[in-house]
Simulated scan of single mutants.
Amino acid sequence: MERAYIDFCKRLAHGIAAQFGPGCEVVVHDLTTADAASTVAVIENGQVTGRKLGDGPSRVALEALHDRRHHALEDRLAYLTKTEDGRFLKSSTIFLRDGGGEVVGIFSINFDITMLMTARHELDALVSTGTQNEPEPIPQSVTELLDELIEQSVRLVGKPVSLMNKEDKVRAIGFLNDAGAFLITKSGQKVCTYFGISKYTLYSYMDEAKSLASADGES
C-alpha cells in the first residue's frame, strides 16, 4: 500500500479507537507487502486480540491474499468473532482497493462486547415480567383509575357496550365490583351512564354477578 494510504488509515484507526475506547481494536492489513507473514501495518488497542505491528494475516486477510483480484470479495459488517481466551467481539471487515479494483488492504474493527453481552443477560433477567404482555398503566387520579377499570371490563367481555347483552353487562359489572371500582365516589353513576342502565339495574347485576361467582366456586 502507498505510504499516504497507510498514513490515512493510521489516522482513521486512531480516531475510531479514541472514540470507542480501549475495548475497540482497529487493525489494517497491508496485502501488498513482500512478506505475506507480516501484514499488520496499523493497529490500535492490539491488546484486544493480542496482536502487534508486523504480525501475520487473519483468515480473512489470508483469503484476500490468495486472490486479491477477486471482485466478489464483499465487506462484512457487524459480525460476531471470538478471541482465543473466550471473549466475544463485534467485528467489521472492509476491503481496501486500488483504482483497478484490486484488494490492497483490509481495514478491520473488533469491538469487545463480552461485558456488554453479560450485562444484557443480567438486564434481560431484571426486566423480565414473565408472561405479561401489556404494561399495567399507573393512573394519576381516581377518575383515570375508574376509566381504566371500565375499559378493562369491556376488554374482558370482548365487545363494545352497544353489542353487549345482559349476560355481558353482568360479567362486566362483576369485574368492576371485584376490582373495587364502586369504592370510588360517584362511580356507580358513571358506570350506569356508560353501560346504559339504571342504578337499580346496576345493583341487580352486582347481585347476579356475585351469585354466579358463588355458583362457580361451588361447582
Rank of each mutant, 00 (worst) to 15 (best):
Asp75Arg: 05
Val104Tyr: 13
Leu96Pro: 14
Asp55Leu: 05
Phe107Cys: 00
Met115Leu: 14
Ala72Asn: 01
Leu126Arg: 05
Tyr79Glu: 10
Ser91Gly: 03
Ala61Trp: 15
Asp67Thr: 02
Arg76Tyr: 13
Asp112Phe: 11
Lys90Tyr: 09
Gly99Phe: 14
Gly54Lys: 03
Thr114Pro: 01
Asp55Ile: 02
Asp85His: 04
Gly86Asn: 05
Pro57Ala: 12
Asp55Val: 06
Leu126Ala: 12
Ile109Phe: 04
His121Gln: 08
Thr131Leu: 15
Thr93Glu: 03
Glu102Trp: 06
Arg69Ala: 07
Leu89Ser: 02
Thr83Arg: 04
Asn110Arg: 05
Arg97Phe: 01
Ser108Gly: 10
Glu63Pro: 00
Arg68Asp: 08
Arg76Asn: 09
Gly100Phe: 15
Leu53Ala: 12
Val103Trp: 06
Thr118Asp: 14
Ser108Arg: 07
Gln47Trp: 14
Pro57Trp: 13
Ile113Leu: 06
Gly99His: 15
Glu44Leu: 08
Asp67Gly: 02
Gly50Gln: 12
Phe88Gln: 01
Ser108Thr: 11
Phe107Lys: 05
Val103Tyr: 08
Lys90Pro: 03
Leu89Ile: 09
His66Lys: 10
Phe88His: 09
Gly100Gln: 15
Gln47Phe: 09
Gly54Trp: 02
Thr118His: 14
Ser92Glu: 01
Gly99Ala: 15
Asn45Glu: 11
Thr83Gly: 13
Gly46Phe: 13
Thr49Leu: 06
Glu84Leu: 05
Arg68Cys: 03
Thr129Phe: 06
Leu65Thr: 12
Leu96Phe: 11
Val60Tyr: 08
Asp67Val: 00
Lys82Ile: 12
Leu123Gln: 14
Glu122Arg: 03
Lys82Met: 14
Val103Asp: 02
Gly105Ser: 09
Val104Ser: 09
Ser58Glu: 10
Phe95Val: 01
Ser92Val: 04
Lys52Tyr: 01
Asp75His: 15
Thr129Gly: 00
Phe107Ser: 04
Met115Trp: 06
Asn110Val: 08
Ser92Lys: 02
Glu122Ser: 04
Asp112His: 08
Met117Arg: 07
Ser128Val: 00
Gly54Tyr: 05
Leu126Glu: 10
Ala119Phe: 11
Glu74Thr: 11
Val48Ala: 10
Ala61His: 13
Leu126Ser: 04
Ser58Cys: 11
Gly56Leu: 00
Thr114Glu: 13
Glu74Ser: 15
Leu77Pro: 00
Asp75Leu: 12
Lys52Phe: 02
Glu102Leu: 07
Gly54Leu: 03
His66Gly: 09
Ser91Trp: 00
Arg68Glu: 05
Thr81Gln: 12
Gly56Thr: 02
Leu96Lys: 00
Asp112Val: 08
Gly54Pro: 01
His70Gly: 03
Glu44Ile: 09
Ala125Val: 03
Arg51Asn: 09
Gly50Trp: 14
Lys90Asp: 07
Thr114Ser: 10
Ser91Ile: 02
Arg120Pro: 04
Lys52Glu: 12
His71Ala: 07
Lys82His: 15
Leu53Phe: 12
Phe95Lys: 01
Val60Ile: 13
Thr49Glu: 06
Leu80Ala: 11
His66Met: 06
Glu102Ser: 02
Glu74Tyr: 15
Ala64Gln: 06
Leu89Trp: 11
Ile113Cys: 00
Asp85Phe: 07
Gly101Val: 07
Ile109Gln: 02
Gly46Lys: 10
His121Ile: 02
Leu62Lys: 14
Arg97Cys: 05
Ala78Lys: 08
His66Arg: 13
